[in-house]
């Protein structure tokens, strides 16, 4: 029987997801033996031209990581969608924009202006910005158009499976690939992750009586002798309750509050609102004024509540100046 054909692509990604595919350790050898890899820019030397020459739906499984930041990425993921039977979004960026989507709080112009004109490390006296087209003496050169916002993959193409995390735990990648090879993937759309929220996997214990008078920053964190206490109860913004399970509370076990990279749990529409309702119920205030004061002291609420999912959030992104 012919081996299933697999492609892996990255859009606006850091490469961490690709590395996590390799972090399946010795299982990567089984994966490589079980499938034909047709395209994987970080690891194999295939070109866009090779993808264009494939038949439609020739790829059995296309794993895409990274959000959509520019016109090239939109073009390639649409091309890959046409050439693939099944598309899986790997990692927070592909699923909901991820860290690069924090840029959605600004428009393209102000980002370009800052990066190419104002940063202290730049030396750009004539002040040009990158142009989509440039007529060099030898011929026209083109680069992709930089979009005004970052998009999640499924805002551009149909996606059947989601493997969350920043980066996704190798155990989930193995679980998804094994299910694909055995033909036991659930009916799409489906997320390959744990059950419930990160709190369900967390070894710390909630104290139902706990109240927080002042929310603290991680910089104020000194590991408590009692590592059993819930970080939220201790006054740290831990996104565990509003985050999909599947990471086995990796960060919290290292005394770092959850930043929510696994994305929102199943059935939650907006993760920031979900988290805010936890924060509100824990905040020790008797009047609205007092609550407002306590919460206004929290630095960078957008970055804490929507670090990985601005494109998929109710607030959307752009800050009204």
């Amino acid at each position: 029987m012919a081996k299933p054909k697999v492609a892996v692509y990255w859009s606006a990604a850091c490469g961490g997801c690709d590395v996590k595919v390799l972090d399946t350790n010795e299982k990567i050898l089984d994966i490589a033996a079980a499938v034909d890899l047709l395209f994987w820019p970080i690891a194999l030397d295939f070109k866009y031209k090779d993808v264009e020459e494939m038949a439609d739906r020739e790829i059995d499984l296309c794993i895409i990581n990274g959000g959509i930041r520019n016109s090239e990425q939109e073009h390639i993921v649409k091309l890959l969608r046409r050439k693939s039977k099944v598309v899986a979004a790997l990692g927070a960026c592909a699923i909901s924009g991820g860290i690069p989507a924090l840029a959605n709080l600004y428009d393209a112009q102000s980002i370009l202006d800052y990066v190419y004109h104002k940063t202290t490390s730049i030396d750009n006296f004539q002040g040009p910005l990158p142009q989509p087209e440039y007529d060099a003496p030898e011929g026209r050169l083109t680069i992709p158009k930089f979009y005004d916002s970052v998009f999640a993959l499924d805002q551009m193409i149909d996606v059947q499976y989601y493997i969350p995390g920043c980066p996704p735990p190798p155990s989930l990648i193995v679980k998804a690939l094994t299910a694909f090879l055995q033909g036991t993937l659930p009916p799409p759309p489906a997320t390959v992750a744990g059950e419930g929220s990160v709190c369900d996997e967390c070894p710390r214990e909630r104290n139902r009586e706990a109240k927080v008078k002042k929310w603290k920053r991680i910089a104020q964190f000194t590991p408590p002798a009692d590592t059993k206490k819930c970080l939220l109860d201790e006054g740290f913004f831990c996104l565990g309750p509003a985050t999909q399970a599947g990471c086995e509370a990796l960060c919290i076990k290292a005394n770092i509050p959850c930043e929510g990279c696994m994305g929102k749990p199943q059935g939650v529409t907006d993760r920031g609102s979900k988290m805010l309702s936890y924060i509100a119920s824990l905040t020790d205030a008797s009047t609205e004024e007092e609550a407002k004061k306590i919460l206004n002291d929290v630095v960078d609420q957008a970055g804490l509540l929507y670090r990985f999912d601005l494109p998929k959030s109710l607030i959307g992104g752009r800050r009204k100046e």
Binding site: Y106, Y114, P144
Partner: peptide, 19 residues
């Protein structure tokens, strides 16, 4: 040619340094 830009220089502004 490097066609990539993220804008970290811009969107890191105003965030807690420890983050």
């Amino acid at each position: 040619q490097v066609p990539e830009l993220r804008g970290f220089e811009k969107f890191c502004q105003g965030r807690p340094v420890e983050e």
